[in-house]
Simulated assay, not measured.
Amino acid sequence: MLNGKVCIVTGGAQGIGKCIAETFLKNHAKAVYVCDMNISELSDMKAKYSNLYPVELNVTDRNGVAQFVHGVMQEQGHIDVLINNAGITRDNLLDKMSEQEWDLVLDVNLKGIFNMTQLVAPIMVEQNAGSIVSMSSIVGTDGNIGQTNYAASKGGLIAMSKSWAKEFARKGAQVRVNCIAPGFVETPMTVNLPEKVISYMKGKTPLGRMGKPEDIANGVLFLSSEQSAFITGQVLKIDGGLVI
């Protein structure tokens, strides 16, 4: 599905991001650049795939992002897929949320994606092809108690992506921009939740289970491939029916 394509996955050293990267590699991507703050988590995959390129990168570092994108273009000559997956949480009720908690989440989850997309999108427009998929959340579409900062970042991401879908294609370039909104997924971020919380969330989900990273990765693969060539500006919820 991704034959010959050069892909970038941010926040790809564990959880959903790592699963996305491996899914791309299994589907014949030419090269997959996986950016993260801790690339040591990728040693097992690097031994398995010669076309995996781990890159230590902070998406909030504009100079670092610029140097990285320039390097990929020098090595490959094109960039076909950008997956904006890097993100963090710093949850708190509004009356207890610190300015630092607000600033950090918005900086990584929103400005980090702005940085990556601003530098990659012109390349895609110039080559008249590309797919950008950004990881939002059902919290970004429907809100959640104690996640003012996270909801703002994920909701803002959807608004940015819809704007970009219009902007990048306005002169006819086949550059698509979409979001994935995962629900409750088994990741390192949720593994330590109390069992009563997990049971509660499963009970609220019509399909009766937590999502798996593969569930999300398969949706990302679809939106990254030519199978979704006429889809742009959309938000695909992958949540087992949690939010209907």
Rank of each mutant, 00 (worst) to 15 (best):
R176E: 02
A173N: 08
G143D: 05
I88Q: 07
P122V: 04
G140S: 10
E195Y: 01
V133L: 11
I180F: 03
N115G: 02
Y150L: 11
D103M: 01
Q147G: 03
N84A: 12
M160D: 04
N178H: 10
I145A: 02
L104Q: 10
S153E: 01
G156M: 04
I83R: 13
A159E: 08
W164K: 07
M124K: 08
N149H: 13
S199C: 02
W102A: 07
K154R: 05
A121G: 09
S161G: 11
K204R: 15
K196A: 13
V185W: 00
A181V: 00
A165R: 02
N178G: 08
K196T: 12
D107I: 06
E126D: 13
Q147F: 05
I145D: 04
R90S: 02
C179P: 14
S137M: 09
K96D: 06
S98T: 15
T187W: 03
E126T: 14
N115R: 05
I88R: 02
W102F: 14
I158V: 14
F114S: 00
K204G: 07
K204F: 09
W164L: 15
M189P: 07
S163G: 14
I123G: 05
S153T: 00
K162F: 10
A169Y: 12
G155T: 00
E167N: 12
K202Y: 07
N149R: 04
P182G: 11
V197F: 03
V175F: 01
S134M: 11
K202A: 10
A129R: 15
T187A: 06
E195I: 07
T89L: 13
S153R: 03
L193T: 07
P182R: 10
L104D: 05
I180T: 09
M189S: 07
L93S: 08
Y200A: 15
I113L: 08
E167L: 11
V175A: 00
Q100D: 11
L94N: 15
K162C: 11
M189H: 06
M135V: 12
K166P: 02
K166D: 07
T141H: 04
A151W: 04
S98F: 02
D103C: 00
C179R: 11
S137C: 10
K171C: 13
K196R: 13
I132R: 13
E167F: 12
I113W: 06
G203N: 06
K204I: 08
D142G: 11
K96S: 10
